[in-house]
Design a protein around this nucleic acid. Structure first.
Length: 716
DNA sequence: CTGGGGTCCT
DNA sequence: AGGACCC
């Protein structure tokens, strides 16, 4: 079977090889039939035999079983600045970092301003260009996280970030749940890429793409409603194609790839460098072998290619050139590192370097803390934020760039463990550890720079990484709730105490001073500076603009997400929980969105609408801000689920204040319910088997907080 | 006249 | 620790 399949693939490859310029229907049809004939379980690709076989014949398998949406925000930094200051919307706006316009709005683009353009050139093109500094990324980071969170909580738990402004969303399971029973024809929403009316594949992918196009439309609508941000979507059956097709209609639009048109899409790109994964150095290697275009790549013999770039790259490039990509959407989780950097013309003295390092470190620790907003949040919010945010880095890295004539862009770095004294402090929520960290940074600095000699630096970067694996906060949760009434009554200091309690781990002394959580100047820091005028710790109090968004932070990668050497199971979908855990999952969830497809036309309907029984049920978007708990109704409920949703108070541990609990955002309530439920049933006997439809019901946001604390970064 | 971030692999 | 890649 594999052999037949591969033979057929090979034939199509040879056809493409023989005349790349001919994009006739024959090629496309052949590809389509190939694609449809080999809907095969991709899990069969990891066997050694397969790998060995692949070396001779790269695994060109077109897999249509997944449905991927790629979301790409329009000129992201510029959009954020326009949200922050709407007056900018009407003007040509450029975001400036040092000497460069890193991005600009579409008004400016009409003047010919482009990304990564020198300020001087941009001003020449557009003398009235308004420039906003974009060197501080924190606002962009905030909006970026909101976007990922929205996609993750409302559409799919499988969301992968790429930079700040792109997200891949695997909507396979959502699509499957909404496949209409009788309607075979579903119109694609938005633009398509490919010939109209093409019926290319018999596997049902066309219909899935069409449904996904409605989901993508809903995603973009939600991003606009809830965050005020616009973006493009690409819809296809793998990440590569989704990303590439999404660019076809910009800005603020969407494009669905029609099955059979992948060859046309890939060849439309022209240059091989347009393929994600082929960067500067790969491209140079390819050029040295005479491979410049994607057609060249398709045409190149595998053995030649392998000789130039190695077998692994050869295989993935060959596949990519045909639009084949089996890589999974990998849930991003919270960041693996936090860094802050500054570049400059000249840094030539130790004191200068110290001050710059201090400033970088200070802003890093500031963004770790989030305690500034604590007094303005309810105690419970603060605590949960802390639970999410307080990840303790175990290593610190210093990176510099020396001016040394030749390789100006070369960086050097040294890293070391953060002193245990400092990590202990951070665990307790005390972020005034500048002193010890500065000492460590200084050591790292001197490993790279001979401070006795003259030096010339042009960049310094401080990076916190290697976050601690296991959180100890989880067990303090119930304690917190039992104190919740105090917090309500006594406001600020009490909320700080609440946070402090959480941080005390378990057996801490009872004399813990609540004030540890306020800003404290570390007097030791003074000794690090011979010169005065350094900045005190900033006590800026950021307000919680949006508690929901602040609180729904990224989930952490789970062990099952950790890469298995190469291929992925496209059906792992929402499956990072074990079957048993899923079955125990509370069914309360926030309103979810989807699209009802009826008579070839999508109709928005509230999820509770019983008349939607015949088709897939989707919530309507207008009511999203009303946070009411709904029992997801896109399938039948088991009696167990009915009871868990209608008698939710039974799921709440006795020591928890119900009033406080009910004041929480609904998705958080669901998170906690699930957490308790899982905990209370963890040691029970194996549960009743349920249907796959049931088990695949996503618990969306339910996973976020719990996973964050029960699982953490596994050491690598 | 080259951003300020991130990721993973070797 | 560096290098590749991404935005």
């Amino acid at each position: 079977m594999c052999r037949r399949k591969t033979t057929k693939m090979k034939r199509s490859w040879q056809e493409a090889t023989q005349d790349d310029s001919d994009l006739g229907e024959e090629d496309i049809e052949d590809w389509s039939s190939v694609a449809s004939s080999i809907l095969v379980s991709p899990s069969s690709k990891n066997t050694p035999q397969q790998a060995a076989f692949s070396r001779e014949h790269p695994p060109l398998e077109s897999d249509h079983s997944r449905t991927i949406v790629h979301i790409d925000l329009d000129c992201f930094y510029a959009q954020v600045e326009m949200i922050r200051n709407p007056q900018l919307r009407a003007q040509p706006l450029g975001i400036q970092q040092k000497n460069i316009v890193v991005t600009c709005n579409y008004v400016a683009r009409e003047f010919g301003v482009t990304k990564l353009m020198y300020i001087a050139d941009a001003k020449k093109k557009c003398p009235n260009l308004v420039l906003v500094s974009g060197e501080d990324l924190s606002h962009y980071r905030d909006y970026s996280e909101k976007v990922t969170d929205l996609l993750q909580s409302e559409f799919s738990s499988l969301v992968e970030r790429l930079g700040f402004d792109e997200n891949f969303v695997d909507v396979t399971s959502l699509v499957e749940k909404t496949v209409p029973g009788d309607q075979s024809l579903v119109e694609v929403k938005g633009h398509t890429f490919g010939p109209e009316g093409q019926v290319a594949c018999i596997c049902g992918c066309h219909k899935r793409m069409a449904i996904a196009s409605h989901i993508a439309s809903r995603m973009r609508a939600r991003l606009r409603e809830a965050i005020g941000i616009t973006g493009c979507a690409g819809i296809a059956w793998n990440k590569l194609l989704a990303k590439l097709v999404g660019e076809k209609n910009k800005p603020n639009d969407q494009t669905t790839l029609l099955p059979g048109s992948e060859q046309k899409l890939m060849l439309s790109l022209g240059h091989a460098r347009r393929i994600p994964g082929i960067g500067h150095s790969m491209n140079k290697k390819l050029e040295s072998a005479g491979i410049v275009t994607i057609a060249d790549l398709q045409r190149a013999s595998y053995s030649d290619l392998e000789a130039v770039v190695g077998s692994q790259s050869a295989t993935s490039m060959k596949n990519s050139s045909f639009g084949i990509d089996n890589t999974a959407v990998t849930r991003s989780g919270p960041p693996q590192s936090m860094s802050d950097e500054d570049s400059f013309k000249l840094c030539a003295s130790l004191n200068d370097a110290k001050e710059r390092m201090y400033n970088l470190l200070n802003s890093l620790l500031e963004s770790c803390r989030l305690l500034d907003s604590l007094p303005e949040a309810e105690g419970i919010y603060a605590m949960l934020m802390i639970r999410k945010r307080w990840r303790t880095p175990l290593t610190i890295r210093l990176t510099i760039r020396k001016h040394s004539s030749a390789k100006k862009w070369l960086r050097e770095s040294r890293q070391t463990q953060i002193p245990v004294s400092a990590t202990e402090q951070i665990k307790k929520g005390i972020f005034t550890v500048h002193g010890p960290l500065m000492e460590v940074l200084l050591v790292l600095f001197k490993k790279m720079v001979d401070v006795e000699q003259s030096f010339h630096l042009t960049l310094i970067n401080v990076c916190l990484t290697n976050f601690q694996a296991k959180s100890t906060f989880s067990k303090s949760l119930d304690k917190y709730f039992s104190k919740a009434k105090n917090i309500e009554n006594e406001r600020k200091s009490e909320s700080e105490q609440g946070a402090a309690d959480i941080c005390k781990k378990t057996t801490d002394d009872s004399t813990n001073n609540p004030k540890v959580l306020t800003n404290q100047q570390d007097s030791n820091i003074t000794q690090l500076f011979e010169k005065q005028g350094r900045r005190p710790l900033q006590t800026a109090s950021k307000v919680l603009e949006n508690k929901q968004n602040k609180l729904s932070f990224f989930t952490r990668k789970l062990p099952s997400d950790v890469k298995t050497t190469s291929k992925s199971d496209p059906h792992q979908g929402d499956g990072e929980l074990s079957q048993g855990e899923r079955d125990k999952t509370a069914t309360l969830s926030r309103t979810r969105y989807s699209v009802e497809v009826k008579n070839d036309k999508p109709i928005d309907k509230p999820e509770g609408d019983i008349s939607s029984e015949t088709g897939p049920s989707f919530a309507k978007s207008d009511e999203v801000e009303k946070d009411f708990l709904v029992v997801t109704s896109s399938r039948e409920q088991t009696s167990e689920e009915m009871s868990s949703s209608s008698h939710q108070s039974l799921e709440i541990p006795g020591n928890v204040d119900v009033t406080v609990f009910k004041s929480l955002p609904l998705d958080m309530q669901a998170d906690l319910l699930r957490e308790w439920k899982v905990q209370s049933t963890r040691d029970m006997a194996p549960e009743i088997k349920t249907s796959s439809a049931l088990s695949s019901q996503p618990s969306t946001s339910n996973r976020r907080i719990t996973d964050f604390f029960t699982r953490s970064k596994e050491t690598r």
